[in-house]
Design a protein around this nucleic acid. Structure first.
Length: 958
RNA sequence: GCCCGGGUGGCGGAAUUGGUAGACGCGCUGGACUCAAAAUCCAGUGUCCCUUAAAGACGUGCGGGUUCGAUUCCCGCCCCGGGUACCA
């Protein structure tokens, strides 16, 4: 009986569905284990072979953990809100809900074919009202909280209100947008509206007028992680900075905890490093500079307070509040012109012209608190308003940007650090991280580190500044001027935002007539009829961003059908948090920061059990496409104008032709009909992408190519012995490059079990690697070989004979390797171990039950369908998923003799078998007396012998 | 620029703690079976020298070092991939 994967896979997929095999419930008898995949955004293109890589890996691990006796939670769902569906709706008028549902159906079909052990009873969709009800509910919790810096955690906003009524802001340590100071009496005199304004300054979800990334083409604002190099990440549309009133989440309040939390996580060092950089902690000092003839003081942040004696001017960001305050009447016109210029520049222009130096003098002078010098205050766009205080002290001798500015405007440059390497700071700045201070008064002679401490101490004593830690991480903009997202559960009373009552949730997304902004420029929700509360208050028109629905979905999976609570106490206590999270590294600075922040907030308010949501994380590598090319012959009669022909030349002949240059006729003419290419002066080739599905093992299916498109119908081929070989290149897997390999076709041709194992066999899980279908035969052969072990004579037949010592060694060696690999996700070497095992058992013609039965269980995480079929054949009534992972036994692996490599002066010369019990001295003697040793010892003296028990022997002769 | 990864046969990739480099698979070559093909099985397959074999030499990006011994550790370069950037 042949291995007929189609019948087998269909049979068991139906069995699993009918028996609800993968349903999982709370079971206190067993330890829990939570394996989570990053849920997909269901795009219209469906899955390609790169997408399931992580799902296959997590599925293998989940199945393994089940066999090891864990109660495994392994859910799947859809991140269903998003811009592509809305953009598609704008173009076609189709409701995003309709296209999204259709895409989800297709995703589900594709996933089902791969035999995953997801508990689909727990599926969630972020666009489902029963799900986003809780997203909105959590938003209200964020709105009703502030961040206490004393306690380092979120607290209810009522607590703050009570406090303000008694003490005012006296001694208040809370994360806020701007520092406020008022007394309790002042607070109590404020109107409701004024009090709401004040509270908004402290809320964790808050409304604020800030500079945001505005994308005019998309008509919405974007978060920092959605913008790269001044363009929107997904579509590449330009983004400009614009001041708008927006919802934000006070992520920055959690910066310190987000940074520290990383240490406890079992994530890759590189991913942690990316997060550390994104959070961007830097130690330094805030220092005040007095302004000549003004009561204003400029507060700056610097990481290098030691260089303060070298600060010869100051620079403000164009958007800084000091800019207006310090501009003198004489300079006003200049400054205004500069601000106009800066405001018009897009983010992209700013970044692409980094080297261009621009700026304007405000007319004011500040006093360097250490030198007492009056130094000019300038405005320049190279200082960013969003970082530090939006103002800097410029030290041109030791900062490249300050140096360029000083040179351009002729400002003085004073060296204050000397590292003994003789830098000329007038010529180029020197970022001196080491060295001693010079020209710096009382700091002279101190090393950098010491000087930093001394300056901070000094400014603190004089009350003109303090040591400070700054973070690059900024608050997350939470508003989107879009339709296809969660409505924000807020209404406006007297223009002030108020949360909806929880009983009114979910606030369902209304139907609208077109998915575009209104004529007055309001977001799409402005089109909704009756978008007001029962009392007639207007509802918020912005919707939530993509990360809202994906920031706590892992908690909802624990109790997805609960309509009274987000997640029950019971479910939370049992499942706690995710033990293993698998997904792409593209979420390093977006989702994985937001989800950690969100979870930390939930932890603060008692809705999550652990401060970190994902204990261990694996980033599966990207699978790149392997594009195929054909070479179309171009001809030229005059050497300048080229003409395309219908001739396609096989790879090696094309290469040969190009190599020959002027002698090209030698390569081509013998292969063409007589008279062809007559009068042609020169030839060249056009490399064309060809659909990889027309190519097998780099050979082109020429008939299929002719049928591929009308322009190829008349194609003629110059072949190598009748075969047309294509060229190839590694590129991103994309429709436009015709290199997308669809898992469905491979499942059709080889079966899901083969595809699963092959994807694991490609290479290390975390490495990016190109997809190459050519190797899949090897895995397919393995499965057929394994299958044949059970079918030595057509029929299923296993023997009850006792296995030999060798067979047991093979078995236990394999079990040990597979188990160890499972724990560290080294699936590619596990597949190799199975192949070796099958080869050895085939050679031994072993079909013994005692060997094969444990192997079926061990193989089942990789190839669940075939494992089920064989398990049933072995006479088991229950699914193999109920089996226990077989134990391996060291006794079958222990050898009586050990083979030592014996080397002379480090080069291995022969091998020597020695009883396991031999002592180091005995091994040495045997090595020296071995007949093979004579040749190497002859006429030489032994200087030294090194014996590493269990490893090797090295004899040093001379 | 800065911060992370990584560089091993024709290809994808193995190699535990510093101890037989190249597991396993693909590809290729030869053979068996077959009328033939497919499928399957067996053997070979880093480079050089060589008719072949034995034996030898060389070999993990480059140059040096530590060591009895280095793909592995240290120093200095080169190249590739990813992240990030007027962040003071």
């Amino acid at each position: 009986m042949e291995y007929h994967f189609k019948t087998i896979e269909k049979k068991w997929q139906r069995y699993w569905q009918e028996n609800d095999t993968y349903r999982v419930e709370i079971n206190r008898e067993k330890p829990k284990y939570y394996v989570l995949d990053m849920f997909p955004y269901p795009s219209g293109a469906g899955l390609h072979v790169g997408h399931p890589l992580g799902y296959i890996a997590s599925d293998i691990h989940a199945r393994y953990k089940t066999l090891k006796g864990f109660n495994v939670l392994h859910p799947m769902g859809y991140d269903a809100y998003g811009l592509p569906a809305e953009q598609y709706a704008i173009r076609t008028g189709q409701h995003p809900a309709v296209t999204t549902a259709r895409n989800i159906e297709r995703y589900r079909e594709q996933m089902d074919k791969l035999g995953f052990s997801f508990d689909w009873n727990r599926e969630v969709r972020t666009c489902d009202p029963s799900y986003y009800k809780w997203t909105q509910w959590m938003f209200i919790r964020l709105f009703n909280s502030y961040y206490s810096l004393d306690e380092e955690r979120a607290r209810p906003i009522e607590e703050l209100e009570r406090r303000l009524a008694i003490l005012g802001t006296e001694g208040l340590e809370a994360a806020c947008t701007t520092d406020l100071a008022f007394s309790a009496e002042e607070w109590n005199r404020k109107t409701w509206r004024e009090q709401q304004e004040v509270l908004m300054n402290y809320r964790i979800a808050y409304l604020s007028e800030t500079l945001v990334n505005w994308c005019p083409r998309l008509g919405t604002v974007l978060a920092n992680d959605e913008v790269r190099e001044g363009l929107s990440l997904r579509e590449g549309y330009p983004v400009v900075q614009k001041k708008m009133r927006q919802w934000l989440l006070r992520v920055s309040a959690y910066a310190g905890r987000l940074l520290e939390g990383l240490d406890s996580l079992k994530w890759s060092e590189s991913l942690k490093e990316v997060q550390r950089n994104w959070i961007g902690r830097s130690r330094g000092a805030d220092i005040f500079f007095e302004v000549e003839g003004s009561s204003e003081r400029i507060e700056i942040f610097t990481t290098r307070p030691d260089t303060i004696f070298g600060a010869t001017f100051m620079v403000l960001a164009p958007e800084s509040k000091y800019t207006a305050l310090l501009t003198t009447p004489e300079e006003e016109a200049n400054v205004r012109a500069y601000l106009d210029y800066a405001a018009k520049r897009t983010e992209r222009e700013r970044q692409s012209e980094v080297k261009r130096v621009t700026g304007v003098f405000t007319g004011s002078r500040a006093l360097n608190p250490f030198t007492g010098e009056a130094i000019p205050v300038w405005v320049s766009e190279y200082v960013l308003s969003g970082y530090g205080t939006g103002a800097i002290m410029a030290v041109p001798a030791h900062d490249a940007r300050d140096h360029a500015f000083a040179r351009h405007f002729g400002l003085p440059i004073i060296q204050v650090i000397d590292d003994g390497e003789g830098h000329d700071v007038q010529e180029a700045s020197h970022d001196a991280k080491r060295g001693v201070l010079v020209n710096s008064g009382f700091l002279n002679g101190m090393p950098v580190e010491e000087a930093i401490r001394a300056v901070i101490e000094d400014v603190e004593r004089c009350g003109i500044g303090e040591g400070k830690v700054n973070y690059r991480l900024r608050d997350a903009i939470f508003s989107r001027q879009r339709y296809w997202g969660e409505p924000v559960p807020i209404y406006y009373r007297e223009g002030m935002p108020c949360p909806l009552d929880e009983s009114l949730l979910p606030l369902e997304l209304p139907e609208i007539d077109a998915f575009l902004p209104t004529e007055t420029g309001e977001p799409p929700l402005g089109r909704a009829k009756g978008w007001v509360t029962a009392e007639g208050y207007p509802l918020e028109l912005d919707t939530m961003p993509g990360f809202a629905g994906s920031s706590a979905y892992y908690l909802r999976y624990m109790d997805p059908r609960n309509d009274r609570e987000f997640v029950s106490r019971e479910a939370l206590d049992y499942w706690e948090s995710v033990d293993l999270y698998v997904g792409g590294a593209e979420h390093s600075t977006g989702h994985l920061i937001y989800a950690r922040f969100w979870n930390m907030f939930l932890y603060d308010v008692g809705l999550s059990k652990t401060p970190e949501p994902f204990r261990e994380l694996i980033n599966q590598g990207m699978i790149q496409g392997r594009s195929s090319f054909v070479y179309r012959l171009l001809t030229s009669r005059d050497g300048t104008t080229w003409e395309a022909t219908s001739l396609y030349v096989s790879r090696e002949i094309a290469r040969e032709t190009e190599r020959l240059g002027k002698e090209w006729r030698q390569a081509l003419l013998p292969r063409l009909e007589a008279g062809e290419l007559e009068g042609v002066e020169a030839v060249s080739f056009q490399e064309l992408h060809v659909d990889v599905n027309l190519v097998k093992n780099d050979l082109l299916d020429m008939e299929a190519f002719r049928a591929w498109g009308p322009e190829y119908a008349g194609a003629r081929f110059v072949t190598e012995d009748g075969r047309y070989a294509c060229g190839y290149g590694i590129e991103k897997m994309s429709k436009s490059l015709f290199n997308v390999v669809n898992p469905d076709t491979l499942v059709e041709e080889y079966g899901a079990d083969t595809l699963r194992m092959y994807e694991m066999f490609l290479g290390p899980l975390e490495a990016s690697k190109p997809w190459d279908t050519r190797g899949i035969d090897g895995v397919y052969k393995f499965l057929r070989k394994f299958w044949r072990l059970f079918h030595p004579v057509e029929e299923f037949s296993v023997s009850d004979e006792e296995p030999t010592r060798e067979e047991l060694e093979t078995l236990h060696k394999t079990l040990k390797k597979v188990e160890q690999d499972m724990e560290c996700f080294s699936f590619n070497t596990s597949v190799a171990a199975f192949m070796i095992c099958a080869n050895e058992l085939t050679a031994a013609r072993c079909n013994k039950r005692k060997v094969l039965e444990p192997l079926v269980v061990a193989l089942s995480p990789f190839a669940p369908h075939v494992a089920e079929e064989l398990w049933q054949g072995l006479g088991h009534g229950e699914s193999v998923t109920r089996a226990t992972f077989p134990r391996w036994d060291e006794r079958y692996l222990a050898k009586e003799e050990i083979e030592y490599p014996v080397s002379f002066n480090g080069k291995v010369r022969f091998r020597l078998s020695v009883p396991l019990s031999a002592s180091a001295a005995e091994i040495e003697e045997r090595a020296k007396q071995a007949p093979a040793a004579n040749k190497w010892l002859e006429g030489k003296t032994v200087r030294k012998v090194i014996v590493v028990p269990g490893k090797m022997v090295n004899i040093v002769v001379g």
